[in-house]
Every structure is written in C-alpha cells, then in structure tokens.
Simulated assay, not measured.
Amino acid sequence: MVLFGTLMNGLGILVGGVLGLFLNRVPERVKETTMNGIGLAVLLIGLQMAIQSNEIIVLLLSLLIGAFIGEGLRLEEKFESLGGWVEKRFQKNSSSSVSQGFMTASLIFVIGAMAVVGALDSGIRGDHDVLVTKAIIDGFVALVLSTTLGFGVLFSIIPVLLYEGGITLLATQIQKWVPDTFLDGFIVEMTATGGLLIIAIGLNLLNITKIRVANLLPSLIMVGFVLYVSTHITG
C-alpha cells in the first residue's frame, strides 16, 4: 500500500493529539529523554539509508550544489518567517485557539526534510520507515501541543495527508518518465542523500548541531541532474 507511511503519520498525530487532550502536562524530563531516544532512532535510519550509496561523488556534488541553491533561496529562513508570521497573526486574536492549534501544528508537521524524504521514499521504493518514524515523532509533538493549544491540533492531519500523500503519489509516476536503468541508480543515490539529511535531523534533535536542513532539500532534486551528467560523461 503506497500511502501506508502517510496514513501512519496521520494516525500518529491523531493518537498523540487525543492523548494530549486528556493529559494535563508532560514533565520536561520526560519530553527531553523521549526526544533523545527518537533522535537516536532517526540517526540509525539515516545511517542505514546513507551507506547504500554507490556513487559518493554524485552524492557529494548533489549536496554541494543543493546547499548553494538552498542558501541562495534562504529556504530555512523563509520557513521560519512563515512560521513566525502565522504565530503572530493568531496571537493577536485570543479567541482563535482552534485556528492557532491547527496552523501551528500544520507548520511543524508539514515543513521539514523528513516529510519530503519520507514521502519520496514511500512512493519510489515502497519503504515507509522514515514516515513511520516521523509518525512517532509527530505523535509525541501532537501530544505536547494539544495539552496547550487544544483540539485544533488534530485538524493538522488534513494538510499532512494531502502534502505527503501528494508527493508520494507523484513519486510513483516517476517510472513513466525515467528509464529503468537510470531510475535504479537514481533511487539508490536519492535514498543515500536523503539519509544524510535524516542524519542531520537526528543530530539537531539531539541538540548536537544546528544544521539548516531545509537549505539542503534541493540536493534531492540535484541528484537526478548530477547523476544524468555523470552517466553521460562516463558513458
């Protein structure tokens, strides 16, 4: 089932959000230790994906070019600005707690490398590990958010399903546009590049680094271009 990962992500948010409505407050120590455990699991998934690479040069060039593009477009800053604008917009109206919960949770769950990488992985390889892991993370975050922002957090399931499901379904159609021989190599290198981004997310979750992962997202697209050029030069 190609949308299994997306549906699991939605279910994780639903379960976490509902539990949060019935819990008064999650202790800070519990949140910290739980997030550390999740960060370690995310690192492991990223490592498993990254070591699959057969073309380290392709991976490296994709990251470098993608980083230049991402920094040039300032993707991370734009995402943060969008989140800040939404937060200020709804803070002005104290009666809009449902809208605030919906918008805040939606931005947290939708914007990020894990949603993109996970959806691509589900669509192209049929591997849902990243999205299932994201479901666990989002479930815990939804639990914490719903204790303060209420049931509006639960409505964030809708944009998550539409966003990740859309990317997943589009990714399944890539075989119609790309030859099988090229696609096999692309899947391997895209997975490895995505794995490195997942590792960066894990390191950020553990507060070891503050990598601007959103600025590296163009690397996933550049894998196809770099691999295409590399194949034609060597071929």
Rank of each mutant, 00 (worst) to 15 (best):
V2W: 00
V2T: 12
F4W: 03
G5V: 02
G10Y: 01
L11E: 04
G12N: 07
G16Q: 06
G16C: 09
L19T: 06
N24P: 13
V26G: 05
R29T: 12
V30E: 05
K31A: 11
T33L: 15
T33Y: 14
T34R: 04
M35K: 06
G37E: 05
L40Q: 13
L40H: 13
L43S: 05
L44V: 15
Q48L: 14
A50V: 15
I51D: 13
I56E: 14
L61W: 10
E71D: 10
G72K: 05
E76A: 15
E76C: 14
F79M: 09
F79W: 00
F79S: 00
S81Q: 14
S81M: 08
R89F: 06
R89L: 09
F90T: 06
Q91N: 15
N93L: 09
S94R: 07
Q100V: 09
L107C: 10
F109L: 03
G112S: 14
A115I: 08
R125P: 01
D127L: 06
D127R: 13
D129N: 12
V132S: 01
T133H: 05
K134R: 08
I136T: 11
L145P: 00
T148E: 08
V153K: 01
L154W: 00
Y163R: 07
E164T: 12
E164Q: 13
G166I: 13
G166T: 11
L169D: 09
L169P: 06
A171K: 14
Q173V: 11
Q173D: 07
Q175H: 11
V178W: 02
T181G: 06
L183R: 13
D184I: 14
G185P: 03
E189D: 12
T191E: 00
G194Y: 00
G194S: 06
A200F: 08
A200T: 07
I201H: 04
L203G: 10
I208A: 11
T209Q: 12
K210I: 08
R212M: 04
V213C: 10
L216P: 02
L220N: 01
V223F: 02
T231W: 07
H232F: 09
I233F: 09
